[in-house]
Design a binder for these strands. Structure first.
Lengths: 216, 216
DNA sequence: TGAGAACCTGACTATTTCGTCAGATTTCTG
DNA sequence: CAGAAATCTGACGAAATAGTCAGGTTCTCA
């Protein structure tokens, strides 16, 4: 099958040892995120996950003791994506440019990883009870940081007066909408299916519609 | 089975005859929307619906032959709400005022009927496969109508140039966010739980952030 | 190369779920 | 009030599900 070097791999996580483990866990997680996003947590069975991943069910149980364990791993992965996206908000740039980059980046990520985006949205919808206090604090800290970036733009007069928190919510919600509710967005735009160009246009339109840019 | 012709009550729906039927169907539908919104379609069992509604399971089956039947009834109810909300967009008003009313109204509805809003969002998330072609056309027609209202404002110079479709998407997504992802919004706003005043403030902020208002 | 660790799996159990049904009870109507 | 229609319900069977386990196979490294 595969003859890799027998080198010691002390890379990072506790499970980084064991190529087979890494490969199979990935298979399981990928299958799971697809199923969870399509049918929800309760609507997904371990048998389906096993079948989608191409493994026997008992083998899935070998790697994850329970469905909840799979789910928790996915949450923490998605949370990482979410916050590295927020770090795209570059304080050095002109706000209009920085916000455009952020929106475009977020849209592009959502377009390419629709299942992840929908998975996260689905679980937020269920009440976000899954976030550990630690994760909640983390989200809060990252959010606050982003707010400060915007606030600085306002203070420096580079940007009209605005409550950064509402601005962020507006950007999150709109970008999410295109990914998560794509069928509805497509209906509204009267196209059969959203394409990359629709996402790009969305980024431009969103930025254009915001009344944040001081007259020059 | 089709021999229910004696009653004199031609009120509206096909089921308007039979007070008991009406009452029990309502009990079942109310229980269902709450459960569906909290646990998803697949995650909800008929037994839970029965228990929540306070009826024996077999009695639920007496009124609805299957879970899908309950679900379809809910969809059409929610769709009605959705489009009567869109009719709140009053073409006679000044755009700023009209849009504020629309946003505030939608937020208020979502706040009061969170389960319905989340139920709809949840099913959109699953791909909107549930909408019949007829319903889809209906949504499209109502949307187009709303777009025309906005377009007229633009043409009359009451409103800056904007693509009405993206404006609508932006408004829908943002208002939905507050209702459907309330825990996340609360975290962002750093309040323990969203209150009415937060929703009101959201409406003001959303309108204020839009750069649609021509200088006077 | 061989012993132990890691990995794999078919078969099994206990539980839950959907949906049905026969017959009991209540409500309606003439 | 009598009979018909509507409503109610406990109990049941077939199917699906989460999770376990004993024992087999493959890999790793000294």
């Amino acid at each position: 099958m595969k003859s890799r070097e027998k080198s010691r791999t002390f890379i990072a996580k506790d499970e980084s040892e064991g190529r087979i483990r890494a490969r199979n866990e990935r298979l399981i997680l990928d299958a799971s995120v697809r199923l969870f996003s399509a049918k929800g947590y309760d609507g997904t069975t371990i048998s389906q996950i096993a079948e989608t991943a191409g493994l026997p069910k008992a083998n899935v149980y070998y790697y994850f003791s329970t469905k909840a364990a799979i789910y928790e791993r996915l949450i923490s992965e998605v949370l990482q994506d979410w916050d590295s996206a927020l770090r795209l908000l570059d304080p050095e740039l002109d706000p209009r440019e920085a916000l455009f980059n952020y929106v475009a980046g977020k849209l592009e990520f959502s377009r390419r990883h629709g299942e992840k985006s929908r998975f996260f949205a689905g679980e937020l919808l269920r009440g976000a009870t899954f976030l550990s206090p630690r994760q909640k604090r983390h989200v809060q800290a990252v959010t606050r940081e982003a707010c400060e970036v915007v606030q600085r733009w306002v203070d420096e007069g580079k940007c009209n007066r605005v409550d950064p928190r509402y601005l962020l919510i507006m950007l999150w919600s709109t970008t999410q909408y295109f990914a998560d509710f794509a069928p509805m967005a497509a209906t509204t735009l009267e196209v059969p299916k959203l394409r990359k160009s629709d996402f790009d246009e969305a980024a431009r339109q969103i930025i254009a519609m915001l009344g944040l840019w001081p007259a020059r």
